[in-house]
Amino acid sequence: MTSPMSSPSIEIRSASPEDAALLAELNDAVHSVHALHRPDVFRSQPAHDDLVPIFKAHLAREDARAFIARSSGRPVGYALAVIVDRPGDALMQARRFISLEHLAVTSEATRTGVGTALLDAVRTSGREAGCSRLITDVWDFNTEARTFYEAAGLAPMRHWLEQPL
Rank of each mutant, 00 (worst) to 15 (best):
Y78D: 04
V76C: 14
E101F: 04
W139G: 00
M1D: 01
R70S: 15
G130T: 12
L161P: 02
G130P: 09
F141T: 03
L161H: 09
A20F: 03
F67P: 00
L23S: 02
T110V: 15
L165M: 12
E11W: 03
V105N: 05
D49H: 01
R95M: 11
L119Q: 02
P17N: 06
Y78S: 06
G77D: 02
P53M: 06
A60Y: 04
S132P: 00
A66F: 12
R74H: 15
M157F: 10
P39I: 02
H31A: 10
H102A: 13
M92W: 09
A29F: 03
E62W: 09
T143D: 14
S9H: 01
W139D: 04
P46K: 08
R158N: 08
A145I: 06
W160T: 10
P8G: 08
A151Y: 11
E11A: 14
G73N: 00
L51A: 11
T147Q: 07
L59Q: 12
A145R: 01
R61H: 11
I54Y: 12
V122C: 04
L161T: 04
A64H: 08
S44N: 11
L36G: 13
S32N: 13
A151H: 14
A121Q: 06
T136Y: 04
S3N: 10
G73D: 05
L51Y: 10
E128A: 10
E25G: 10
T136G: 01
M157Q: 12
R146T: 06
R133F: 13
